[in-house]
Nucleic acid binder design. Structure first.
Lengths: 323, 323
DNA sequence: GGGAACTCTGCTCACATGAGCAGTTGGCGC
DNA sequence: GCGCCAACTGCTCATGTGAGCAGAGTTCCC
């Protein structure tokens, strides 16, 4: 049932927010004191009778960001609202990531980046001169074998060029056939040098992939659909810098991981600033895994994904009581 | 493209409405003066970036009400928002009508009412003792032949009883087979007396019916589906107190009208207070006809119907220029 | 290049508003 | 009936806020 006070609240809210009357005028009109009216309005806002919404593609969901930060001990989080209009969510998340990078103070001296569609889109959204002297280094392999090799390289190059620095590419496949080959290539002076630079980066920026046959790692011939199916059956939810993890953030297949070139998850976890940019329906599981296993310190995503991450009741490894 | 000011507006709006910061604080944060922030916020509201909504079944759409009043020279209008939750719109409109009646000052000495599902619902929503001494009189025929005769009578009786007055029923069919019979029955002392009371009512409350085979007039056997189809082919959009009108509010069939018992549309048009309560998708055409042909001075409806009435570009017989 | 028309900016000032507080009312147990 | 607690009411006062105004900056036309 709708109570009398509720009805009064509605009436007052209408007069206040739609008719632009003062609380005083409303008081006279409804036969109440202006303080009573003020209290009714506060109540109306608290009860959700009055809903104030910010409708803009570039708006953000601060309450969710705050909750993400608290629940997962993040340094920062950015949540972009789900599209009211038709604009692509992935695009707006990339834009937000670009904004975030741009606003970093101080800007990272060296930025470690992965590659993929998301990283590409971020690069596109970085305006010329977004920073001065930001060197970029690739943190996982993928050049040459990959259909997207050109893009992978260009992503890093574009970010570096617009950021006024140099790009260092990682001249290695993402996954090798034998562990020994990986050790050998990593021992090579060129590759070793790049990996060292990568390890010393002041910030990391990466996305994550879904564990299914549509993965770029399958697409590029590093893995067969059967390999991925096997990984999934063993609990894999997706990959981060080429390494497949389960819902708890653990490496699913140590043998495979031993053949994968790039910085380790441990390095990522201990980094001062690791920015994960993950959005879109299919990526919710991997997003949850990344965030809840502390693979990132900054999480940039869309509203739906954030909701999925937050709604998971048993997530939040570092859930803290707050007063 | 999203301009810089727009972005600033969004940012300011977020801080103001979501973080509850003062304009002063926002000014410091964004490096602006507090006046600039104030202006950005005003702009954000004007541009619709900030949307303030009142979400409540009993809320009303004042801007539409105002527009209806202006466009159609109404004394008053009530527009109930389309259901956010699942509750019946028809029910909420009836509730609004009941509220309206109750709030009438002074209450009508005699209230002329039609009958039907809508009127019934209104009666149900009137609380006991909603007025003191309101006599009720039926304004159109329908007793006895009608399946709903009992309801028709009870509607009037309930309104009268709860309003602390007497009900006067119109003991006549809605439509007779011959004009002569109608004249004869109207000449009968009882019926004549009731019609006289009806003509002298201080306010009228009625709904309207759709012109199709589902009409209560067909249902009750007054008209055959073929009759209605014929009326529709001649432009009928619905009926008001048993009389079929076209989109311009004119009687469609004078012969039929001559056989219909009850107050005339002319009487309705010249009434000081004629309250039409019309809602629901199929009734949009008849609602438009009623409002645009001045059959009512008060119009109570739902948001969708109001929108349909207002969107019709060539409606508004008395459209006035306002400064 | 000069000037008029315009917008934009920061300000004063009056008004609107919420926090905090004391007095009042209305339950509720004894 | 009596007193206690809790909720509610109306108030003071400090603060937040928008209207209106004058000066600065910009655009545009001759």
């Amino acid at each position: 049932m709708t109570t009398t006070v509720e009805l009064l609240s509605v009436r007052a809210a209408e007069l206040y927010y739609e008719e632009n009357k003062t609380q005083d005028e409303i008081g006279v009109l409804l036969g109440l004191t202006r303080w009573k009216v003020g209290r009714l309005l506060t109540q109306a806002r608290e009860l959700g009778i009055v809903r104030i919404e910010i409708v803009h593609p570039r708006a953000r969901k601060h309450s969710m960001e705050r909750e993400l930060c608290e629940r997962f001990s993040l340094v920062d989080a950015v949540v972009v609202p789900s599209a009211a209009d038709g604009s692509s969510v992935a695009d707006r998340v990339a834009e937000a990531a670009a904004d975030y990078l741009r606003a970093l103070r101080p800007p990272p001296a060296t930025l470690g980046v992965s590659w993929g569609r998301t990283l590409d889109s971020i690069a596109e959204h970085l305006p010329d001169g977004w920073a001065r002297g930001v060197d970029v280094v690739q943190i996982n392999g993928g050049v040459s074998l990959n259909r997207r090799a050109g893009t992978a390289a260009s992503t890093a190059v574009v970010i570096a060029r617009t950021g006024g620095g140099q790009a260092t590419l990682l001249p290695s496949p993402a996954i090798l056939e034998h562990r020994k080959t990986r050790l050998a290539i990593e021992a090579d002076r060129t590759v070793a040098g790049v990996l060292e630079r990568a390890a010393g980066a002041s910030a990391y920026l990466y996305s994550a992939g879904v564990a299914d046959a549509s993965s770029v790692l399958v697409d590029s011939g590093y893995l067969s659909p059967e390999d991925v199916a096997e990984l999934v059956s063993r609990g894999a939810v997706g990959d981060v810098v080429g390494r497949y993890i389960d819902a708890d953030g653990n490496i699913v297949d140590n043998e495979l991981d031993g053949r994968t070139v790039g910085i380790s998850l441990t390095q990522l976890r201990s980094a001062a600033l690791a920015i994960a940019v993950i959005s879109g329906g299919p990526k919710q599981a991997i997003a949850r895994a990344v965030v809840s296993s502390s693979l990132c310190s900054v999480f940039i995503t869309d509203e739906a994904t954030a909701k999925a991450v937050l709604d998971n009741p048993d997530s939040g490894t570092t859930l803290q009581e707050r007063s």
